[in-house]
Nucleic acid binder design. Structure first.
Lengths: 144, 144
DNA sequence: AATATTTTTGCAAATAAGTTGCAATTTATG
DNA sequence: CATAAATTGCAACTTATTTGCAAAAATATT
């Protein structure tokens, strides 16, 4: 099944129509590197209304047709290392608790990227979401 | 030197005054996990004007007092794995070219996080910026 | 295929996030 | 403590996103 047929199927299966708007959004994303909403709207350039692009994004997300590289925020602020140390985070979806990613493991990863690609990293942003030990245990109990 | 004295020093050194606004922003960020602008404004809650918070953020960034966990975008959109594979990216600051992060290395990293913290990852966002081989070579030439 | 029904679209207007101009206030300096 | 320079708050603006509603398009029915 082609990606396009897949789209039709995904829409029909859940009772949604196949429309010009939806095809345009799909085709614009297809074969592109990830796009911001602004870029997507720019590329679609008046062929369909801005509002419909937003609505299509929302629908496609619900149907699992697209996914967001989702930071949920444009940026977060923190004091620089000189004033307090900079970390990357694990966020528990269960209890919203935030812990730091182990520095050694992170460094090993960044180094492996560097050597592999002959790429010299100068900055990185890493966020991981999941379930902490406590929440996994609670959930287990809930499911029994 | 305490973080607070450090702040005074960093400001004075570059000819900026020490003001109530700047102290409040600093203290609010100090000892907090990273905050979005909205959260920061909410916590400061009318003690100083929204606009001044924005201006202080801008100044602190220029002075290297704060740093952004900077995605530069709230989210980017891409087709789900069912329609096209989902990757994480290396962005070259020199030529803006985007390449994918090696999947094996990424998985190894995610697994190491999982075992270490007893944390079960369900999603992650990773972006790395730096210089590709070509741009490093070009830059070398430019510096000679 | 023509019409009825349901879904989707575009437009106008609302809300939210961030920026700019300017007069009033605060901070630094002699 | 008076003056000059820097900083703040307010109002107004821009940009991003959302919502209500009538018109248009897609689907189902005959």
């Amino acid at each position: 099944m082609s990606a396009y047929e897949d789209l039709n199927h995904a829409l029909k299966q859940r009772g949604y129509s196949i429309t010009r708007s939806r095809e345009i959004v799909f085709n614009t994303l297809s074969g592109s590197t990830p796009l911001t909403t602004a870029d997507l709207i720019k590329r679609i350039n008046k062929r369909i209304d801005r509002v419909s692009v937003y609505r299509t994004i929302k629908l496609f997300e619900e149907l699992g047709i697209i996914q967001r590289l989702n930071f949920g925020f444009k940026y977060k602020l923190e004091l620089s290392d000189r004033f307090a140390e900079h970390h990357h985070h694990l966020t528990c979806i269960g209890c919203n608790r935030i812990t730091d990613i182990n520095k050694k493991e992170l460094e090993a990863f960044i180094n492996s990227i560097a050597s592999d690609k002959e790429f010299l990293p100068s900055a990185h942003q890493i966020e991981i979401q999941g379930y902490c030990k406590k929440c996994r245990e609670t959930e287990k109990q809930l499911n029994n």
